[in-house]
Design a protein around this nucleic acid. Structure first.
Length: 306
RNA sequence: GGCGUCGUAGCUCAGUUGGUAGAGCAGAGGACUGAAAAUCCUUGUGUCACUGGUUCGAUUCCAGUCGAUGCCA
């Protein structure tokens, strides 16, 4: 498998599609927001980009859930495997492409996740208990690393449900090891910020406000959109008249810059954990990037056929 | 032109009854295996506009200069 990762606005999709054309590739997206139907401009889901000279590059894990749904890493890991096996069986090259660090890691670091069914009785029992007690219970079973686990009762209970189930039902399925060569697109921070700002203006011109209005009019709860973050959060706040257009632009722009930074933090962490990322300078023209990748792959015994 | 107010970290500002200063935002680094575009943690030395004066000592008081702003003419 070939992995293409990078922060937002680094041009991953374009590179992946062109690469796919060279090696009968199919793209598996690693993007936690492009899975949703109707969330297009705000997620940078440009489906037109997948067709090159009239040829369509198959893509997976895009538009697979309705907006408003709460997709998660476990489902992603499962869905990834299905797509991966399907591509393998056709003899095509899987190209894993995206910027959601957690999803990339779930596959590349072979996270141990298992299906945990809902336990109505447990939920009923836990309903009575105060949140503090539930937090203590959870703490005794696993390390907490963020607030989203415990601020909402529903999620807190789900977290406990998972821990309890796993304790009682150890499984022996291991996520398969996938031979993988990883490339990352690298931009100097200031340049990336400029690209993000420019792209944001473009998205607004292209109708991003209307896209969010549309989602709201379809009955998708504003709380969901606020949680989806970035474009969906700030445009919703604007539509709710919580912030002005100017504020929306400034705050959103900054939020995307910060997001890109967090993505880079995650990628560096993946490297520290042992993943070899072959960084490609983002300012190189597309052809140069492809050349660099092909050269690297030819030296790689996994890709002799290229 | 006269009178007043202001000029402090990249930005918005606080403060020092005279002993060289601190918040928010931005920025930087990091954590993160079940909503991850989420969530959370760490991180603040800057000719306190400039030039003089008073003082043991001034960013703080005084005078002047420059800049901003308000009112009056």
């Amino acid at each position: 498998m070939i992995t293409i990762l990078g922060p937002t606005a680094s041009g991953k999709t374009q590179l992946a599609v062109h690469l796919a054309a060279k090696c009968s590739g199919e793209i598996i997206s690693a993007d936690s927001r492009q899975v949703y139907v109707g969330m297009d401009l705000g997620t940078g889901k440009d489906l037109k980009e997948y067709s090159l000279n009239g040829k369509n590059t198959p893509y997976h894990l895009i538009d697979i859930k309705q907006a408003g749904y709460e997709y998660n890493v476990f489902e992603f890991q499962q869905d990834f495997l299905k797509s991966y096996q399907q591509i393998e069986s056709k003899g095509n090259t899987p190209i894993f492409c995206g910027g959601t660090g957690l999803y990339l890691s779930a596959v590349l670091n072979r996270y141990d996740l298992q299906e945990v069914p809902q336990n109505e009785k447990l939920r009923e029992d836990l309903k009575e208990k105060p949140s503090e007690e539930l937090v203590e219970m959870l703490k005794s079973m696993t390390s907490l690393h963020n607030q989203t686990d415990i601020t909402e009762r529903e999620r807190l209970i789900r977290a406990l449900e998972i821990q309890i189930y796993r304790k009682e039902n150890p499984h022996n399925k291991i996520f398969p090891e996938i031979k993988n060569t990883c490339f990352g697109i690298l931009f100097e921070r200031n340049l990336l910020r400029e690209r993000i700002t420019q792209r944001l203006s473009q998205r607004l011109q292209d109708g991003m406000i209307e896209e969010v209005e549309n989602l709201l009019s379809q009955g998708i709860k504003s709380e969901k959109l606020l949680f989806y973050g970035l474009e969906y959060k700030y445009v919703t706040l604007f539509l709710q008249k919580e912030i002005s257009y100017e504020q929306m632009f400034t705050l959103l722009n900054t939020a995307i810059h910060q997001f890109a930074k967090r993505q880079m933090t995650w990628f560096r962490r993946m490297e520290r954990q042992g993943l070899k990322i072959n960084w490609i300078e983002g300012t190189l023209p597309l052809e140069g990037k492809l050349q660099q990748i092909m050269l690297h792959l030819k030296q790689d015994h996994n890709f002799k056929s290229l």
